[in-house]
């Protein structure tokens, strides 16, 4: 299934849920904040959140900043 993560297309290899999409995309899901189609999905709901074809996922986190 094709999804869009941080502006780039990605083919999901495993299950079509958000937890897996994040696992397949970044090595350290700790402190990751995710939005699906503009809506924030809290980490406790990632496993049960089913993705649809072409869903737009934003993965953000904290970085150094003034």
């Amino acid at each position: 299934m094709k999804i869009i993560i941080n502006g780039k297309e990605k083919q999901l290899l495993g299950p079509n849920n958000l937890a897996n999409a994040i696992k397949e995309s970044c090595t350290d899901p700790e402190h990751v904040i995710s939005e699906v189609n503009g809506k924030i999905i809290r980490s406790e709901n990632w496993e049960n959140f089913s993705l649809q074809e072409n869903d737009k996922i934003e993965l953000v986190t904290f970085v150094g900043g003034g």
Partner: peptide
């Protein structure tokens, strides 16, 4: 203070 940014998926 910290800032919020898109994760760089290319590098850890």
């Amino acid at each position: 203070t910290v800032a919020l940014r898109r994760i760089d998926l290319e590098r850890h």
